[in-house]
Design a protein around this nucleic acid. Structure first.
Lengths: 236, 236
DNA sequence: AACTCAATTATTTTCGAAACTTTGTGCTTC
DNA sequence: GAAGCACAAAGTTTCGAAAATAATTGAGTT
């Protein structure tokens, strides 16, 4: 699922980048998550082919995949739109995600080996390095934080054996990212709180304490969602 | 998910069929579920364009959607394959489906109105009409039974408000259909048992007894899956 | 025989022109 | 002025040729 797009730097004409197909899929999804395209906005092919510099067919393929993932809606003959957002949907997605994540982490704790544990510690450290920064710097590197935050949560459940469980968990995580976007400008005290929570979750997990880890994750997620919900309510 | 094709005009040359795109998606999925293409089989564009009489692009779009749904796998540059099946996967899918279905039916029972109830009774009756047939006839109309069985289970949860819950429930139901295929030739006594179970589930649901309905559904599904699992184990 | 590596064949992936649909606009009629 | 109709404009959907990539074959070498 994660196609890493590496900097197409000015080196010799080496072909490091992903194929245009999965590349445009990733960029498009990222643009929707980051609200470059507003919810319910129409996605016209004419505009898109220029923006992403790909053919109509390639774009169409990416868009129909995003439709399966729930990021866009499609109506035959009328084209594609960015899926709308709503408070009700956020509540449901949060609920489902917590269910998946807590279940996955219990299974991971039961099945995880030393490599899994070591990776969690490593990835958590990478997250710390950004979260520990002075607030202004931390905000400047928000995109990077999003990525590392994702990697941290992914590492926690990586040892879970259920492929479908992980798949659905990832789907819901991706959807939550869209809503997390509205809390981008959270306060410094909130940021500090998260910093601590991540450490506690990491510790409970490597201590193989499934109940604590699950409970902490639930609080951690619900907290963020509640704040997003409040902001969403103020806006409309 | 179900694209209803409404006749765009009342003209003589009426176009009753779905647009090529969603049409080929449906046919392809159906062919995979019915094992026309065996698990892990390669899906070559040259063959497919002839079989379905559509262009490469259209086919590609359908295939990448089926990839998101988990029916096919895709490897960049190497094309598409039918997703493999395994006993482990069946166990996981069954588990997840039961979780979704029982949760959905409780919510439906809490929220359902008179129309919802009436529809369940109607759809159950349509199912009965096939299940009550002499066994040989019942088997001849197996495809029709699959459709009505799906409609029955869909009607039960139709009043559930969670869009994502229903979505994931449908995903898992579709996946189960693939495995149900192997139990197509179940015995007459098994068929009779299902006949009774469907009636009991229907009755518990319209009686608004969520606990009973959920418990019965769990037994009902797990029973079928266990039988499929046995057959799957014998084969490989 | 086992191992290159270059040429050839098979297959996938991309792209945009052409066909088709929907939406918008202005004219006609009642 | 509203409703209907015809035509133009805007947009989407389909298709297959062409480019790019992967797999195969086979001659030459160790």
């Amino acid at each position: 699922m994660q196609i890493r797009t590496l900097p197409a730097n000015g080196r010799a004409a080496t072909r490091v980048e992903a194929t245009t197909g999965s590349n445009v899929l990733t960029r498009l999804r990222s643009d929707i998550v980051n609200s470059e395209f507003k919810p319910s906005a129409r996605l016209k092919f004419a505009d898109m082919t220029k923006r992403y510099d790909v053919g109509i067919g390639t774009l169409r393929e990416a868009l129909s995949q995003l439709a399966s993932e729930g990021f866009v809606t499609v109506e035959a003959g009328k084209g594609f739109k960015v899926a709308p957002v709503s408070a009700e949907e956020l509540v449901e997605i949060t609920d489902l995600f917590i269910g998946f994540e807590t279940r996955a982490i219990r299974e991971a704790i039961a099945a995880g080996d030393d490599d899994w544990e070591a990776n969690i510690v490593a990835v958590h450290h990478r997250l710390r390095l950004i979260e520990g920064l002075p607030w202004s710097e931390r905000m400047e590197r928000h995109t990077e934080w999003v990525q590392r935050h994702r990697e941290f949560h992914e590492a926690l459940v990586a040892a879970c054996q259920g492929r479908w469980l992980l798949r659905m968990r990832t789907m819901m995580f991706d959807q939550l990212d869209r809503y997390r976007f509205v809390t981008k400008n959270a306060s410094e005290s909130q940021g500090r709180k998260k910093f601590d929570e991540h450490r506690e979750i990491m510790q409970a997990t490597v201590a193989r304490d499934g109940d604590s880890a699950a409970a902490m994750i639930e609080r951690h997620i619900r907290d963020t969602s509640d704040r997003a919900l409040k902001i969403l309510g103020q806006q409309g």
